[in-house]
Write a protein that binds this DNA or RNA. Structure first.
Length: 486
DNA sequence: GTTGGGTGTCATTGC
DNA sequence: TCGCAATGACACCCA
């Protein structure tokens, strides 16, 4: 036992901890440490407006597709969720005692080395990016029945579209597809049947941007041949049924580029001569690349399921250009409203070029034809709508991707939260054990301390404090309180 | 008949 | 000023 007289100091007592249990030397240095509704633009002339709407209301130019059936396949190919295994709390060397019994036998295993390595590997952004395998629903390629057999177009192309000229060449460079070909029989028969209602429900009017178009009753601007569009059919709002029977027997020829196009209806470089039997499977150059086009290349298109590798899921169940009827082969989807408008006004140029050509090429294309104001307005509307259609598709796709990413991030955060909660519980258990262990050590130390009278110090009256220099002091609680109060 | 998803279209905005 | 992409809103169709 330490014999130093000043074992107990009035306010603070320095002692030297003995390395040997039971011997504390007060006053020396301690060698053992305890711690370690929309509004449409400008007002229109009423009469013109009516005429325009009449033309635009070709929605009623409907063809029946009896028994039309659709295959439904939803938006495809979300990437599988990223494994969360990368995240996790690195388990410490310390094994959390169960339960913190604070007995010395268990404490021996503690060995003063308590290290928990909290994982910082919160990999919110997984390695694998969600990749959509669908490709961009591009514009379809479809031909218009501007056949010269039955009714030569009043518009004379100044230059053959197929001539490898500047426009055509630049179009190719622009990556415009000339993929899907909807061909017409040499007899100019109708292309395909159409469901009772139109594909698009909106009127499609662009009253604010387009001059009034001709209507059957009001052939303004010399819109030619509204009632006598080729294909041996007369477009009449009042006779949609007349088309039904007629179109059922129509022989259709298709050449398709299923990969690239979805909604353009005229083949690039369409020309009357092109309305010949043409069934070659076209693998055209990729379409003009949109910002998302990298993914779009492999995206199932609204055209249908066909890819080089075979049948894939459909992009849409509703607006397929090909629909499968029970017990029958694929049936071409109905024409869009713009297609029918273009047919009605005998727009002589392919829709995909109308929509996809660069501005300069588009303007050059327009110069190649003598178009009426009505036709010009329609062409520009077709271009605007076609581009906006693609933009809307991209926009929706991005929205879905955003939702998908947010959901994935939410899942990751929830997983992370669970890990952190588990980690917290382990820390709490460890802390309880450490406290218990400290209490044991405290008791043990105090059991060896004696004052000058040989009496043990009370744990309730004294506490041990260590200074930064490693010295251990026995401090009475009263002085501690005074110091704390100071 | 209702509902939700898909789609086309228009208007608007910003680049 | 023009062209265009992006997007909200709306209407419509369909399962």
């Amino acid at each position: 036992m330490c014999s130093t007289a000043n074992c107990v100091l009035p306010s603070r007592r320095t002692f030297e901890a003995l390395t040997t249990p039971g011997r504390l030397c007060v006053g020396g240095s301690m060698s053992t440490h305890l711690s370690g509704a929309r509004s449409h633009g400008a007002p229109q002339d009423t009469e013109m407006d009516v005429a325009w709407q009449e033309l635009m209301a070709i929605t009623e130019l409907q063809f029946d597709v009896p028994g039309e059936a659709h295959e439904t396949t939803q938006y495809q190919s979300m990437e599988s969720m990223v494994h969360m295994g990368a995240y996790g709390m690195a388990q410490s060397q310390y094994q959390p005692p169960s339960p913190p019994a604070c007995d010395l036998s268990t404490a021996n295993t503690y060995d003063g080395c308590y290290s928990i390595e909290a994982s910082a590997s919160h990999q919110l952004s997984g390695n694998a990016e969600a990749m959509y395998t669908h490709s961009e629903p591009q514009l379809n390629q479809r031909m218009f029945p501007v056949s010269s057999h039955t009714q030569p177009s009043l518009m004379t192309p100044r230059e053959d579209l197929n001539i490898p000229g500047t426009s055509q060449h630049r179009r190719s460079n622009a990556g415009l597809s000339q993929g899907r070909h909807m061909l017409w029989t040499a007899h100019g028969q109708s292309l395909h049947a159409r469901p009772a209602d139109d594909l698009e429900s909106d009127s499609g009017l662009s009253l604010g941007s387009s001059p009034p178009l001709a209507s059957p009753d009001n052939p303004v601007s010399g819109a030619p041949g509204y009632q006598s569009v080729d294909m041996n059919m007369t477009y009449s709002d009042g006779e949609p049924e007349s088309m039904t029977g007629h179109t059922r027997g129509v022989q259709m020829h298709y050449s398709m580029d299923y990969q690239n196009q979805t909604h353009s209806y005229l083949h690039s470089g369409a020309h009357p001569s092109y309305f010949q039997t043409h069934t070659a499977y076209s693998h055209s150059q990729p379409n003009a690349m949109a910002p998302w086009s990298v993914k779009q290349q492999s995206q199932p298109t609204a055209l249908g399921d066909y890819t080089d590798s075979g049948v894939t899921s459909r992009w849409s169940s509703q607006h397929n250009l090909y629909t499968k009827q029970p017990g029958s082969t694929l049936t071409p989807a109905p024409l869009s409203r713009d297609e029918r408008r273009a047919m009605a006004l005998k727009i002589p140029m392919p829709m995909d070029r109308i929509i996809n050509l660069p501005v300069d090429d588009f303007n050059e294309l327009l110069t190649q034809y003598t178009l009426t104001d009505t036709q010009l307005a329609l062409v520009r509307d077709i271009r605007r709508r076609g581009k906006n259609k693609v933009a809307a598709q991209n926009c929706r796709k991005r929205k879905l991707e955003s939702i998908f990413h947010l959901e994935r991030e939410l899942n990751q955060l929830q997983t992370q939260r669970e890990h952190l909660a588990q980690e917290r519980q382990e820390f709490k258990r460890s802390l309880a054990f450490i406290k218990c262990r400290l209490a044991d050590l405290y008791t043990e130390v105090f059991s060896h301390l004696r004052d000058e009278d040989g009496q043990p110090y009370s744990v309730d009256e004294y506490s041990l404090q260590q200074t930064p220099d490693g010295k251990i002091y026995l401090v009475p609680h009263t002085s501690m309180h005074k110091r704390d109060n100071c």
